[in-house]
């Protein structure tokens, strides 16, 4: 049984996964696996980008999404003509010959991974490049995986990815569809800031910063006076900053979004 794994820590956001999917599927007819994808507007493989924080504590990360090829998919039971089937290798395929374009599967998939092709009147999505896997040529992986320069998008037998599956997560597990697409290192929320002494106009290095609230942690500021609390869930926190007998406390920090507390004068 196959799985996809995407490691956000190694993804540089080049969109090769998204582009190579189009290169494979736009204007190419892989019947009976898939009909051509429209030139634009459909994203069987989709890269989503996220900008977090505020100037200057800003970061980005990317999530490469596609059909999760769920073990308990909502699309298969939704299809009235049994056009969607799961292969022995776990890939979920919409048979373009059987599909009647009723769009029920599009409505059923809460991951929004299925697209409607108006010209062909069919529903379409990622096939895992099953046509390539089945013939084993010219590559042995889906195009998106083959095109990934940093090897952060991976595909293969479940048994070969036991570590990643253990450490990783699936998107929205609460939906209960049992996705076969795992993610590593999706950042959680952060609280960061820079501590400086307004009199000397110097950063404060080695200040003790204590996080309290929904989680507790202690870090010290680095040689830029920066501190970072990372891996936080959404919640409410306080940060206490101490150095040389001076103390500053910042309360009511909400991590609904990532938080840059800015340059903090410790006086």
């Amino acid at each position: 049984m196959k799985v996809f794994v995407h490691d956000a820590a190694k993804c540089c956001g080049c969109y090769q996964c998204q582009i190579s999917c189009k290169d494979e599927h736009c204007s190419n007819d892989w019947t009976p696996y898939a009909k051509p994808q429209p030139l634009t507007g459909q994203f069987w493989g989709k890269l989503n980008e996220y900008v977090i924080g505020t100037v200057p504590k800003v970061r980005m990360y990317y999530i490469s999404q596609r059909c999760n090829h769920c073990d308990n998919p909502s699309c298969i039971p939704a299809c009235p003509v049994e056009a969607i089937y799961k292969r022995d290798d776990g890939l979920v395929i919409i048979d373009p010959a059987k599909c009647t374009g009723c769009k029920l599967c599009i409505d059923a998939c809460q991951y929004e991974s299925i697209y409607y092709n108006e010209g062909l009147n069919i529903a379409q999505k990622c096939t895992g490049c099953a046509h390539i896997l089945d013939r084993g040529w010219p590559i042995t992986e889906p195009r998106c995986v083959d095109a990934c320069p940093n090897e952060c998008l991976m595909f293969g037998e479940e048994s070969g990815f036991s570590t990643q599956i253990t450490q990783g997560e699936v998107l929205n597990p609460e939906l209960g569809t049992e996705p076969r697409h795992y993610y590593l290192n999706i950042p959680k929320k952060f609280i960061g800031g820079t501590v400086y002494d307004p009199v000397t106009e110097e950063v404060v290095i080695g200040a003790t910063c204590t996080l309290s609230g929904d989680k507790t942690a202690t870090v010290t500021t680095d040689d830029f006076g920066d501190f970072w609390f990372e891996g936080l869930a959404a919640g409410s926190f306080s940060v206490k900053i101490e150095s040389g007998g001076k103390v500053k406390t910042i309360d009511n920090i909400s991590t609904e979004k990532d938080v840059n507390l800015g340059d903090i004068a410790l006086s």
Binding site: N28, Q37, G41, N117
Partner: peptide
């Protein structure tokens, strides 16, 4: 995803563009 004049790109259609064979044609 809407149908446009570029729908030939959607399909696997044969496109014969007169002497202009090829341009604008990501055909199937």
């Amino acid at each position: 995803g809407e149908v446009s004049r570029r729908d030939f790109l959607v399909g696997a259609g044969t496109v014969v563009v007169g002497t202009a064979v090829g341009a604008g044609m990501l055909s199937g």
